[in-house]
Amino acid sequence: MELTNENVLGKLIAQFGEENIFDAYDPDGIMTLTTTRENIIALIQYLYDDKDLQVQFLTTMAGIHFPDHKGRELCMMYQLHSLRHNYRLRIKVFVPAEDPVLPTLTNIYAAANWMEREAYDFYGFIFTGHPNLIRILNIEEMEYHPMLKQYPLEDQTREDKIDTYFGR
């Protein structure tokens, strides 16, 4: 079966229903769809097991922070790849900032382990069921999640960056 965005989407909607697969669009040839955190693992498992799809490769996971979207500030992007059909797709899940909890993907993909730790480190996502959810890149004592938009990029200890040097 030739995989196209339409027939994959149709198949997924038939399986999971309109209310769980929504906002599908195609920004760059890779279909992007949104689902809920209740369904994300079942969806990825379905993509993995289905004989026609065989989406069995997790390319990457990335968090995104949208401070202006009330109630759905944090987004987790899963990008999957079917090596058999050379077909890629992207799945997004939005969660509120106060409750950034997602189920873990480590039971399906070993690669998810560190990617989830990175997402926890950068954005504060909590992955339930993760075997070892601790910071990965930053020091354990760090008190905030640096990739959130409200935190500054610069090192706050520099004293030589005074305004006169920058004409401010």
């Binding site: 920004p27 760059d28 890779i30 992007t32 390319t59 990457t60 990335a62 995104i64 922070h65 992007m77 990008q79 890629r88 992207r90």
Partner: peptide
């Protein structure tokens, strides 16, 4: 827009996932 592009890096698939909100810097 939102794009993903990957190249075969020295070590493997090197991918760039870029989200732009229409501004002057990448959004992500």
């Amino acid at each position: 827009g939102e794009v993903y592009h990957s190249v075969e890096g020295g070590n493997g698939e090197l991918g760039f996932y870029l989200v732009s909100d229409g501004g002057r810097t990448p959004y992500r």
